[in-house]
């Protein structure tokens, strides 16, 4: 990863800095002053750019950095360091929220690689799934019209969709691993394309399950 010249030097003491070790990368290794935080979540957390990550290590880094960046520590520090601590705290919290969630994490990496997330042409949805989705919507309509007879069918369909979500998550995990193992940009991009497709399917099914849940609860309420 290339760093600009400025970032190699501490803004406070001018020494060649900072080290790339987790958590400490934010601080000058000579005068221990907080440096301008990187907005890149992976760099901020000193993580390699892999999609599969160690959840526990991430959580520990998060706690450790939360302590190091706590605003109370910067009350008497120079203005510039106080500003950095606020920026760093925001990046810390946003970054943790994104990185700890496999779906958000993958979307983040996709965006960073120039993929548009959340747009898709209809022909990318498998036809068999559409049939099922259409039938599900028909049942929801009947339920809204007051026909409680479809509840059992709806619950059955809900179970099928939840099982699909499970297998999609396994698929996503596998694709994460082949992304991380990919040698060369072509293989990596191909893998990201596959991941985007998986995420689209996942979101689609997730929305359906949520809609079924809403309808079933509003009926029970």
């Amino acid at each position: 990863m290339s760093h600009s010249k400025e970032e190699h030097h501490c803004w406070n003491c001018g020494e060649h800095s900072p080290s790339q070790r987790a958590a400490r990368s934010l601080f000058c290794q000579f005068c221990n002053t907080l440096q301008a935080p990187s907005p890149d979540y992976y760099r901020f957390f000193s993580l390699p750019k892999t999609l599969a990550i160690d959840d526990e290590a991430l959580q520990q880094t998060f706690y450790q950095m939360s302590r190091l960046l706590h605003p109370d520590r910067y009350g008497r520090r120079p203005e510039r360091e106080r500003t950095y601590s606020l920026e760093a705290t925001a990046i810390l919290n946003d970054g943790y929220r994104v990185l700890k969630d496999p779906v958000r994490r993958a979307e983040y990496v996709l965006r960073e690689n120039g993929f548009q997330v959340g747009e898709q042409r209809s022909n990318e949805v498998p036809a068999e799934l559409l049939e099922e989705v259409f039938e599900l919507n028909m049942m929801l309509d009947e339920l809204k019209a007051g026909d409680g007879g479809v509840i059992a069918q709806l619950e059955e369909a809900r179970g099928r969709f939840l099982a699909m979500l499970d297998s999609i998550d396994t698929e996503l995990d596998d694709e994460f691993r082949s992304h991380d193992a990919a040698s060369g940009d072509d293989a990596r991009m191909a893998s990201l394309t596959a991941i985007r497709g998986i995420l689209h399917r996942r979101r689609y099914i997730r929305n359906l399950v949520d809609e079924v849940d809403r309808q079933l609860t509003s009926r029970n309420a």
């Binding site: 959340g118 747009e119 898709q120 209809s122 022909n123 990318e124 949805v125 036809a127 559409l130 049939e131 989705v133 259409f134 919507n137 689209h200 399917r201 979101r203 689609y204 929305n207 359906l208 809609e211």
Partner: peptide, 13 residues
């Protein structure tokens, strides 16, 4: 023709 838009959940026959 049966098509759908995953993003908004629309499905059209």
């Amino acid at each position: 023709g049966l098509v759908g838009a995953p993003e908004c959940g629309d499905v059209m026959k």
